[in-house]
Design a protein around this nucleic acid. Structure first.
Lengths: 343, 343
DNA sequence: TCGCGTCCTGACAACCTTGTCGGTGGTGAT
DNA sequence: ATCACCACCGACAAGGTTGTCAGGACGCGA
């Protein structure tokens, strides 16, 4: 058992190749050769160098390496809304996995749906010269990334498209998903369906609202303004909305929720009430199948989203210079029961 | 709408201070002064420099900055088991938040419970000269971090203690938590309680097993080997285990699960069966309160864990040189119903 | 002996930025 | 006219690493 702490306090200068060279009695360049497994070093010399490296606990300074080589820093940046949201943590993991295959580390940051913070994070990552950037946009304008992309840093936008620029984007079929959900509910007899969506300045929110509307049209049920409640939502606001929507003379009998957060809020709000509305939630979530009734969802695997984005990014890094692509991943309606209850 | 893509293909050299200086007709140093808001630059000159910066899309190379300044890279590393696990993503978010307060970026990596990968990630981060490291150990030996800590990089271990070294550690009270859970179950009449834990080489797993044992003793119920099933667990292995434990002449009537993954597996496995065992799960999880019956848990907030670890880390960075600390956070038994059903 | 090739090694510059220090030109006081 | 002072600016080195190039030692054939 060794005490692993530097009781001296202040940071100590780390050993450099220069130190190793001095100790081994060779030149810096020879140390470099050994560290990089370059040929042309006598085995005895190499051994001395390795011993010195071991003794000094030398570890190559990757920062200096990057500066010298100038090509790749071996990092990519990932800006998303909130890692703690299971949707984004799944996405993060997928990105990490792909990055690992390409020998890259991942810098992550949560924007909390704040455009300024998104920008701050993205530019900070760029200043660190990440090899590429994956961004879940919080803001609507991304011109600030112009110089970055112009100088060869590929950027891929995920889940939402960028504003005022054209770049690689991976989306999901929000419209089709929401529409299918409404059709599903209508097929089970519902004619008064409500939509609880995220803030209208969020791309996915308005897209899903559009899908909701299209679904109503397709299913031949009325689209009613009073049944649409866009966010931002909190647990309290969702509860209040539900009181309004589910009360009165002609209440909604079914709900479509715009993302996993809202779905959870709704579930909590309707847990106690006697006559629960039918429900379909956008985004799948763990345990949805174990609730009573099991929650039907429009599922889109965050892992697939992350993987697609990362692979697109690395394709760019590998030299793909085709025009910016827009990938739209399909969603899947997963009927589990909560959408099948009649009005 | 501008096309944000570098169709030229290969990476273009980014503008440097030298380029800015040339364009503005000043020396590099003057550019540096402007960029760093140093005094002693005529306002007209500064304006010319700023214009050049804007024009060239110049962004200071943080790598070079770090090399030159030598002090801090403004990053910390976080090695955990799996970001996609809600427990760790909550922890990640908390760490990120604290780091943000200290102006640091976070490098994250998932070890997947693989000691080699943990080591690889940690050393990679150190090579990038992170200012500090937060590690959820996967392996049992951490001597490899000796040189890092010796040279002043503080390391904080979270959730599990390090092996063969002494360093700052933030844990939760696993023993007390498991013990309290058993006592709780016994108080509701259960005398045959089973424990489904993680792999025995994981610290928290054996600690919780110990707590389970102590709980049995404290509650005056028998501790039976046949009711203990340590992992690693998969959905299938959990199901098989349950068939064994819940079958036969004297089956277990209550379960304690060792972490949120196992709890979910159990929930899925017992969803269909007629006579469900009582259940208490270690780790809280979203929607636990909405299941039927609501799942009682031993709760420990991953955010608190992450926050404590990060704050400890930054205290070290701020010069705290007191001996390594071991913080044990309390857990809280949250009775929700699943632990209250009788045998 | 010389010339030549091979193997091993080191000096030096460069990557981009900043700290140090010295220089220039102008202003005001003597 | 001289000097001190100030505001502004630039040359240079350094930080840790690697690519380029050149040099020394040695062996071998002529």
């Amino acid at each position: 058992m060794t005490t692993l702490s530097n009781r001296a306090g202040g940071r100590v200068r780390r050993a450099t190749m220069s130190d190793v060279a001095r100790l081994a009695g060779v030149s810096i360049k020879t140390v470099s050769r050994v560290v990089n497994d370059e040929p042309g070093v006598h085995v005895d010399t190499a051994e001395r160098v390795l011993a010195a490296i071991e003794r000094l606990g030398f570890r190559r300074n990757v920062g200096a390496l990057n500066l010298r080589r100038g090509s790749s820093t071996g990092t990519i940046g990932l800006v998303l809304e909130d890692v703690a949201n299971p949707f984004y943590s799944g996405l993060t993991r997928a990105v990490e996995e792909v990055a690992r295959g390409y020998g890259r580390q991942v810098l992550t940051g949560s924007s909390d749906e704040d455009a300024g913070r998104e920008r701050e994070l993205a530019l900070e990552f760029c200043a660190r010269r990440v090899d590429g950037l994956i961004v879940v946009p919080a803001g609507l304008r991304h011109g600030y990334l112009m110089p970055e992309i112009a100088s060869g840093t590929p950027v891929v936008f995920v889940d939402r498209p960028p504003g005022d620029v054209l770049a690689d984007t991976v989306l999901v079929d929000n419209i089709e998903g929401a529409s299918a959900a409404v059709v599903h509910l209508a097929a089970h007899g519902h004619r008064r369906v409500a939509f609880l969506g995220d803030a209208p300045d969020i791309f996915t929110a308005t897209e899903r609202l559009r899908g909701f509307r299209e679904g109503c049209a397709k299913a031949g049920i009325p689209y009613e303004e009073r049944f649409v409640a866009m966010g931002p939502h909190t647990e309290a606001s969702v509860a209040a909305t539900l009181r309004r929507i589910l009360g009165g003379r002609h209440p909604a009998t079914a709900l479509l929720t715009g993302n996993n957060r809202i779905t959870v809020h709704v579930l909590r709000a309707i847990a106690g009430i006697r006559r629960r509305p039918a429900l379909v939630g956008f985004d799948d979530f763990e345990l949805a199948d174990l609730l009573d009734p099991p929650v039907s969802v429009v599922a889109l695997d965050p892992g697939t989203l992350g993987k697609s984005a990362a692979e697109l990014l690395f394709a760019r890094l590998d030299g793909d210079t085709t025009p910016p692509r827009r990938i739209v991943l399909p969603v899947r309606l997963v009927p589990r029961g909560s959408g099948e209850v009649g009005p």
